[in-house]
């Protein structure tokens, strides 16, 4: 942050100053105003400020021209030049229009402190939400849970009691916030295990005694409802399509539900979850039991 904005402006401004050289002799202010040390009590006038305004307008025009070619719109290439140009504009306004160049250095320090801190806060938030954020493990890939592997592969070698009676230690289950412990107890069908586990259905859907999600429609009695929802679809077909292609039909008040559900939400949240054909069949089989 310690770059002297006067210098930055100076570099960007060289051409203009050269063109306006002839005016400099009558008003020594122009080059000194922008680049030199200005003694107290000396101020700019129409000439200096007008020049700066033209300069700023030209930068704005350049910024606009940079993104006119369609190939450049939204591409990463233009970010650096655009940021640099707007930083130049920013400091020109601060240094000359706000005449911070000619003020007590304390004012610089105060403003730069706030500015730098604001920048650091914004940057660190962007980094924390972007680069440094770990990929959510549960949704990244379908996989066997390593702990289970370990138990299966070294069945004999493990001395302590085997976790038969323990709930499956699948971490996605921990991420499904409302899955009650009982849901994964012995006797749960493979479909139900998937429902509260790796498929993460329980994050959004409610089934009495199994899951309490609020974002998607409740699934109690879905087998009965599904049979009548779209004419020509059997319950099984409807449920399978709703899992595989959630956007094909989004349920809502028209189906007697209490609210309209958000179109596209399920496909977006399920984007990272890969279900095999057996998984889908297991889920369909489980949901068809909910009459």
């Amino acid at each position: 942050m310690s770059t002297n904005p006067g210098q930055e402006a100076a570099m960007a401004h060289d051409e203009h100053a050269a063109h306006e050289e002839h005016a400099a002799h009558e008003d020594a202010g122009i080059s000194r105003f922008f680049f030199g040390h200005v003694p107290e009590g000396v101020h700019g006038g129409l000439k200096q400020y007008g020049l700066l305004a033209i300069f700023l307008a030209i930068i704005t025009l350049i910024e606009f021209l940079i993104i006119v070619p369609e190939g450049l719109q939204g591409s990463g290439v233009v970010i650096a030049p655009l940021v640099i140009l707007s930083v130049i504009k920013f400091f020109c306004v601060v240094a000359f229009f706000m005449h911070l160049k000619f003020e007590h250095e304390l004012l610089w320090q105060i403003f730069v402190a706030g500015l730098a801190l604001g920048l650091v806060v914004a940057l660190s938030l962007v980094l924390l939400f972007g680069v440094f954020r770990p990929t959510p493990r549960a949704f990244s890939e379908p996989r066997q849970v390593p702990f289970e592997h370990h138990v299966e592969d070294h069945h004999e070698a493990v001395a302590r009691p085997l976790p038969d009676e323990l709930p499956p230690p699948a971490d996605p289950a921990d991420l499904a916030p409302a899955a009650p412990a009982g849901a994964t107890a012995a006797g749960a069908s493979p479909g139900q295990t998937l429902f509260v586990g790796t498929a993460a259905c329980a994050s959004c859907h409610t089934i009495q005694g199994v899951a309490q999600g609020v974002l998607g429609p409740p699934l109690d009695g879905i087998a009965s409802a599904a049979a009548n929802r779209i004419s020509g679809y059997s319950a099984e077909e409807y449920i399978r399509e709703s899992i595989v292609e959630p956007d094909a039909y989004t349920a809502g008040t028209a189906d007697g539900l209490s609210q309209d559900y958000q179109q596209g939400l399920m496909s977006a949240t399920m984007a990272g979850i890969v279900l095999s054909d057996e998984d889908v069949e297991a889920l369909v089989e489980y949901l068809l039991q909910l009459r």
Partner: peptide
Amino acid sequence: AAGGDPILWQHLFWL
């Protein structure tokens, strides 16, 4: 439901 992140509140609050 709209893609918002509750963690943002925590960051802003503790900042």
